[in-house]
């Protein structure tokens, strides 16, 4: 006998909101699924009138974009939610930020006024800290990498090991003239702008590529932070604010 979903009253979505959140400090070790669970609980704690899908197991209407990998910090992750009553984005931002554990922070919110938000997230700007690697050494390695037209790397995906190019998506790479922490000069910092593609080229893939072209093996794990996502800037050295159009 086929089961039919129980008939329930579901209030329709009347408004969509776009949120920007950060994943900081030790909570960078949370996975995307960890964030999802935490966020759905935060919606309940913050009393957000979230819309639900219909069906056997209704789930809150939340869509997630390009989640940063586990272990990677981020200042710019994006989600979109649907609510059943019109809400004030500032109050939503504050209430959700309060309801999430420190380290998962809602940093911006706008009412969604424009279509095709996902397409606006063209590229990511990354910061990679290399403890124990000198500025000069990294500069040489990065130069060698950028000189290549293509650097093939391998990654284990759901469908098995896949080989792809980690070079062409990197539109900008520069070793910065600053120390990560004062008094710790042996920590080179790499700024990257990477265009979103399929498969997505992640910082890990770039690191694999640096190893491939110049045998760079950092002595301790590289600390990675996504600084921004958005439309690629005309000069190719950064990204713009994806909420600009919604703010009008």
């Amino acid at each position: 006998m086929a089961r039919t979903a129980p008939v329930r009253d579901f209030a329709p979505t009347v408004q969509k909101l776009r949120l920007k959140y950060a994943k900081r400090g030790r909570l960078r070790f949370s996975s995307h699924r960890d964030f999802q669970r935490a966020f759905e609980r935060a919606l309940r704690r913050a009393n957000v009138p979230i819309a639900f899908s219909t069906g056997f197991s209704p789930h809150p209407k939340v869509s997630y974009n390009n989640a940063a990998p586990t272990g990677t910090a981020s200042e710019a992750e994006y989600i979109e939610i649907g609510v059943t009553v019109e809400c004030d984005p500032d109050r939503i931002r504050l209430a959700l930020d309060e309801a999430l554990p420190p380290g998962l922070d809602i940093v911006d919110a706008v009412v969604s006024n424009t279509p095709d938000f996902a397409a606006r997230l063209e590229a990511s700007q990354w910061r990679l800290e290399f403890p124990g690697v000198a500025h000069a050494e990294l500069s040489t390695v990065v130069e060698q990498f950028m000189d290549q037209a293509e650097v093939l790397v391998e990654r284990l995906m759901k469908t098995g090991i896949r080989t792809f190019d980690a070079r062409s998506a990197v539109v900008f790479a520069e070793v910065l003239d600053e120390a990560a922490t004062p008094g710790d000069p042996e920590c080179a910092i790499l700024a990257l702008v990477v265009r979103h593609s399929t498969p997505a080229v992640r910082p890990d893939d770039v690191l694999a590529a640096l190893r491939r072209v110049a045998d760079l093996v950092p002595p301790t794990p590289v600390r990675v932070t996504r600084l921004a996502q958005g439309p690629l800037a005309p000069d190719g050295q950064g990204v713009g604010d994806p909420f600009a159009l919604d703010r009008g």
Binding site: R26, L27, F29, S30, S31, D34, A38, R41, T70, G71, L100, P101, P102, G103
Partner: peptide, 10 residues
């Protein structure tokens, strides 16, 4: 699963 070692629970 490094998240299990970092604490930070609500």
């Amino acid at each position: 699963k490094p998240i299990q070692y970092v604490g930070g629970e609500l």
